[in-house]
Amino acid sequence: MLGGYRIRNNAPYGVELALLASIILAGSSIPRAIKTGGKPLPVVLSVLATYGLWTFGSAFQNRV
Rank of each mutant, 00 (worst) to 15 (best):
G3K: 04
I23P: 10
T55G: 03
E16M: 06
I23S: 09
L53K: 01
T36V: 06
G52W: 02
Y5T: 06
L2A: 13
L2R: 10
Q61T: 13
Y5M: 08
I7G: 00
I34V: 15
A59Q: 12
V43C: 07
G52V: 03
L48I: 14
S29Q: 02
G3V: 07
L19Y: 05
G52A: 04
L48A: 14
A33K: 01
K39C: 00
L20F: 13
T36D: 12
T36E: 11
I34A: 14
I34D: 08
V47G: 14
G27H: 01
S46F: 03
L17R: 10
A18G: 09
R6D: 08
K39Y: 03
E16L: 06
R32K: 08
G52C: 01
R63V: 11
G14F: 07
S46R: 01
N62W: 09
E16I: 05
G27D: 02
G57A: 09
Y5R: 09
A59F: 12
L25S: 05
A11S: 07
A33H: 00
G4V: 06
T50K: 03
G37T: 01
V47A: 15
K39S: 04
G52Y: 02
Y13S: 08
S58V: 05
V44D: 03
M1H: 13
L20R: 12
P42M: 03
G3M: 08
A26D: 02
R6H: 09
T50G: 12
V43W: 03
L41T: 12
Y51T: 14
G3D: 11
Y51H: 10
E16G: 05
A33W: 00
L48Q: 10
G3L: 07
L2M: 12
L25V: 01
L17I: 14
Q61L: 14
I30D: 01
Q61W: 15
I30C: 05
L53I: 06
R32I: 09
Q61F: 15
K35S: 14
N10Y: 13
V44C: 07
V43K: 01
R63D: 14
